[in-house]
Design a protein around this nucleic acid. Structure first.
Lengths: 78, 78
DNA sequence: ATGTGACTCGTAGTCCGTG
DNA sequence: CCACGGACTACGAGTCACA
């Protein structure tokens, strides 16, 4: 898979899923912590939503990671 | 200034401005490269807009920096 | 427990100006 | 060159029934 050409929504979605699983959270659990709808998390993880900064912040906080860490993977390094 | 409590929109706005000035671009020049509206860049830099991922990607590309690097500052490390 | 289509409603994002 | 405002359109936020 060519990471450099993958859509940013997909990259973010995969990163959310990766971190969520590391924390052993369900989509429902993450949704609760981030105060968003369960089905919205599904959409985000599957790259179907063009999320805004404020939602990103809530997800990242709920995943208990810094913004820097969230984007510190090879997928985001181009 | 307490960086940890500063809103993500303000942090992003400041980072855009910082990188834009390093590149010696005007807001208009950046807007042109990122294919967004001139007035929208003003609002973003001043932390008034809740930008989406796709617009973020366009701005970051226009600033010629990776996503990882964009968020790799102490403001985003919490 | 996750995924999907179809919604409503507010705001993201554009375009016209001003000082 | 930048900040700001008004008016507009497109799309993100947020929810639901159903699978």
């Amino acid at each position: 898979m060519d990471l450099s050409r993958m859509d940013i929504k997909l990259k973010v979605g995969q990163r959310v899923r990766e971190l969520r699983k590391q924390r052993e959270l369900s989509q429902e659990g993450l949704a609760y912590k981030a105060e968003v709808d369960r089905t919205y998390v599904t959409d985000i993880e599957n790259g179907r939503r063009n999320v805004s900064l404020e939602i990103m912040e809530r997800l990242i906080n709920a995943l208990d990671v810094s913004i820097t860490e969230f984007f510190n993977t090879k997928e985001f390094r181009k």
